[in-house]
Design a protein around this nucleic acid. Structure first.
Lengths: 343, 343
DNA sequence: CTGAAAGCGCTTACAG
DNA sequence: CTGAAAGCGCTTACAG
């Protein structure tokens, strides 16, 4: 049997109250008591039971992040950042991959999740508003990550999609491109609208007219970028540059160009968004907008912990600034700019 | 205040014992009691307190996976597989990124982790034997993933590194290459030795002599593969093919070749191991050995749950078979083989 | 089928 | 500084 606080107390010759006090660093304990308890703990290899502790304190010491079940490297980074942030603050982290399907036993586990944590990070888009309401009613603090929350009653954090897109498109404009196309994402994502808005803003700011036929929709995956690019390449005159709402689509677009014998960036420049890992491996390396995903995970944890600790500050929608990572797909020459690759 | 089992009992007009019974699906409850409790639960939005439940049942309903803090896509996949596996079995999953540094408050959290879970998946190499011993003493079942466990007293799972390497090198041999070099990994990894063994075996099986000067060591990262390739390209006669112990090093090797104007696969073929995401994006796409990482995560969970449920079967070291993914860096022509890319 | 009661292992006023 | 005791919210023999 595992030792309990009683085992320790007995061995140390004190009461369980005293054991609890030295374990929790209460000030008022005699030196000798501390010493004897410490020794007993060491000898027994005692570890306090987390459930009992949680019950007594009504706090679990753990947070959770809910992310989309089928999700790429983005969420891995996010989870990693959240994990690091949680641990630095002495919290454990539970993860939950939410499937798109509503109903069924999986939802039951999601509900139970709320019971096992002190706070929740919601990074999944396919979570229904009902669940969010439920969590709120249950009194578990939460922060929404990566999308705009429905109401304005919950903290959130996401990249500054608008200004990131402005950076991307402005860079293309400064290269001298004038027929700049965009492969947009689908609306659900939350990011989609803002990235398109940034594209429009940048064009407008430079007095460029928007060619409606050069704006085509994808769905944030590689295949849709490939197809979108096929459509764009059929336009006459063809675009001289393409801004894709994310890297997956940009990479798909590059494949379509290659297949048609259209040179990148010689015939058409391409810029993406997100700076996923493959971006630096494709040929030519992809110029894109970097967002600090791990950082967002960490910050989300901090925002969440503030609420867990009782903060009643006004609801915050934090925007994380992005940076332009210049590689070669935009037409910049290799070696002239920083390329975080090998060598 | 959150409703408790008492709130529900009162509202339903029954005792808490009855509430507990209907919630846990005990057979012997009257229809009317079930009905009234269900209604009360629904109206109150009652959720059972996980800590109290854990305390009463002495089981937490959660597992944990411990992975290296600074780790790439491999562990993301692993975590994802484990998460899916855990959830399918009704368990929650805690994650913990273990830093290399021993000692300090972080270790304290690792210890406490054992107290919050019913079982542990150890996927980190930088966990000291002491910790493993401690977990065992504490009575928490565990399975080690990706490396050979120290003793033979704990279940483990990893890819079949030997036969995977044999597949890789055999493919090169069948291409007609005869001076096949290898970039090995560093021993710590556990995989390193077996992958080199597979290389030797394949050569030997085909009556090829091993050229000691063609075996050079890297450290499983891109930069070391780059440097190793520089060394190999200085050999005379130069190797006509290179087997790298993982994809990162293979990609580094490709960069080194490109920089020297050495064509891949025209002048030297390259094959990697792992099939990480960038493998299909590099130019030429990398031929490599695929291992089902998510699958390993799932299986690890299953093995673990068997122990959690009390299995005392003999300790198992499971080997997961690998598959050769033919792309272009080996010299196979594009389009002739399946390339899981776009289009 | 149902309830009163003990017990799971902690924390923390409350007295001393 | 210290201990006896109540309480956290469940589960489950034990009687009925």
């Amino acid at each position: 049997m595992r030792p309990t606080i009683h085992t320790v107390a007995e061995r140390a010759g004190v009461s369980i109250a005293t054991v609890s006090r030295v374990l929790n660093g209460s000030r008022s304990v005699s030196r000798t008591a501390v010493e004897r308890v410490r020794r007993a703990v060491g000898e027994l290899g005692y570890l306090p039971n987390a459930s009992a502790r949680g019950l007594a304190l009504s706090s679990t010491g753990t947070l959770a992040v809910i992310f989309p079940k089928l999700s790429g490297p983005f969420f891995s980074e996010l989870i990693r950042g959240a994990e690091a942030g949680a641990r630095e603050s002495g919290y454990h982290l539970l993860i939950y991959g939410a499937s798109t399907v509503a109903g069924g036993p999986q939802d039951r586990m999601l509900e139970l999740l709320a019971t096992k944590v002190d706070g929740l990070i919601l990074a999944s888009e396919n979570i229904c508003a009902d669940y969010v309401q439920g969590v709120r009613r249950w009194g578990v603090p939460m922060v929404v990550l990566g999308r705009e929350p429905e109401g304005s009653y919950v903290d959130s954090i996401r990249p500054d999609n608008v200004s990131g897109s402005v950076q991307a498109v402005t860079h293309l404009i400064e290269h001298g491109y004038r027929r700049i196309a965009m492969i947009t994402g689908r609306g659900v994502h939350g990011h989609a609208g803002d990235r398109e808005a940034g594209y429009r803003t940048a064009l407008q700011d430079h007095g460029l007219r928007l060619h409606a036929e050069l704006v085509t929709q994808g769905s944030f995956d590689e295949a849709s970028g490939y197809e979108a690019m096929q459509r764009l390449l059929r336009q006459r005159p063809a675009p001289d540059a393409v801004f894709a709402a994310n890297d997956e689509m940009a990479i798909g677009a590059m494949a379509a160009a290659r297949e048609r014998g259209v040179g990148v960036p010689a015939d058409v420049a391409i810029v993406g968004f997100d700076d996923i890992e493959p971006a630096r491996y494709v040929q030519p390396p992809l110029t894109t907008i970097h967002q600090d995903v791990q950082g967002q995970g960490r910050i989300a944890v901090q925002m969440l912990l503030a609420r867990v600790r009782g903060s009643d500050a006004v609801v915050e929608a934090r925007l994380i600034s992005t940076t332009l990572v210049i590689r070669e797909s935009c037409g910049c020459r290799p070696g002239l700019v920083h390329n975080p690759g090998v060598g």
